[in-house]
Design a binder for these strands. Structure first.
Lengths: 199, 199
DNA sequence: CTTGTTGGCCAACGCTCGTTGACTAACGTA
DNA sequence: TACGTTAGTCAACGAGCGTTGGCCAACAAG
């Protein structure tokens, strides 16, 4: 729905190609299929059909299915800075709200979660996001940097668990929770994992 | 590893069949494959190979792949009673410890989580477990029974999130958490979702 | 206009899958 | 011993998959 990217893979790099529209259509279709079907059931043929091109084009542009997945799923959580003294005490709420925004506007996150569960490359990609994006934020804020990995893992468990039950498994009571309820319940949890003294 | 079942589907019902050993071997192999590979990549041929029989036997005994999955994955969480006045204040810790025991001794849980993410029938099975097993316990303990679905969903999000990061995605910091650490961090969270006044 | 390059389609390959049905061996009973 | 039932094997089917290579059309540069 959003226009985060449409044509060229890396905007402003290299010469624009005549095929950029097709490349973009393939990536968009791939993201949607991976998000709804997971890795195995998202077939190249179905993705090509969605993009209204021939399956062989996918191979030409992205090499193979794994290459397509790698190109389609690039995630930048754009985590907000919560290291300021005024924001530190509010980090839980800020992070929960940010995650809800992300998950509800970006099908790539659903795609990666679905793929990570049945595909080793997908699982490693998620490990990388924890390590390169969530862990640094945690390290900046939590009391003892040595505890940062454990605290980041706990935060990931709660945030991914919410995404799992609400956006992937679509368990009715999790779907029916209002956004404000989720924030009210989860913010203290995340805040505790982030800054509370270790129990 | 545990001997919760070995031969006949429903112990003590119907006449024992000569093929009960084979049926059991098929179910055991199916559970293992579904747990490690998920639904699509767990092929009937591989399961039959593990059980040292012909793939057609699987079809004969369980009809088709969905039937095999339904027979292989039957989950009873055996949730402890935490409605007693003395246990109510400790429900969080008791439930977290119980879940850890379950997940570490029962590959069926991993199988169902892996399958639920990419398979509609699996997702519905998980919804049923929330509804029929976790929800009743929550309803008995939480202050306002009308809030039970929301509270149960919150508990499920944290507990399934831990299982996801630790047992499925195997994120290193989540794997390295000691059992006591997990209990110490998660018990207050679950306790709060269970009994704290709604925020 | 010619020619090289790029974008795209088509038909087929080899493979694996779930599933089927015919056939054989072992068993239990009379 | 004879026979129906059960357990199991074997070979094949149709379909869908990822992937390949050859071919044609549109464009850009000389």
């Amino acid at each position: 729905m959003n226009g985060s990217d449409s044509t060229s893979t890396v905007p402003g790099s290299g010469a624009p190609r005549r095929s950029d529209a097709t490349r973009g259509a393939i990536l968009a279709a791939a993201r949607e299929r991976f998000a709804t079907d997971g890795y195995e059931r998202a077939t190249i043929r179905a993705i090509a059909r969605d993009a209204s091109i021939d399956p062989s084009m996918v191979m030409r542009y992205y090499g193979n299915k794994e290459g397509l997945f790698a190109a389609a799923v690039a995630i930048d959580l754009r985590l907000p800075d919560v290291s300021g003294a005024d924001r530190r005490q509010d980090g839980g709420r800020i992070l929960v709200e940010h995650f809800l925004d992300m998950w509800e506007n970006n099908e790539v996150l659903t795609a990666l979660l679905r793929v990570g569960v049945t595909n080793q490359a997908g699982a490693e990609r998620m490990q990388g996001i924890l390590r390169d994006q969530l862990l640094p934020v945690t390290r900046q804020v939590c009391p003892d940097p040595e505890q940062a990995p454990a605290r980041a893992a706990l935060m990931a468990s709660q945030l991914l668990g919410l995404a799992l039950t609400r956006y992937v498994l679509r368990m009715p009571p999790a779907v029916e929770l209002a956004r404000a309820e989720i924030v009210a319940w989860l913010a203290p949890t995340i805040q505790r994992y982030l800054t509370a003294p270790s129990p």
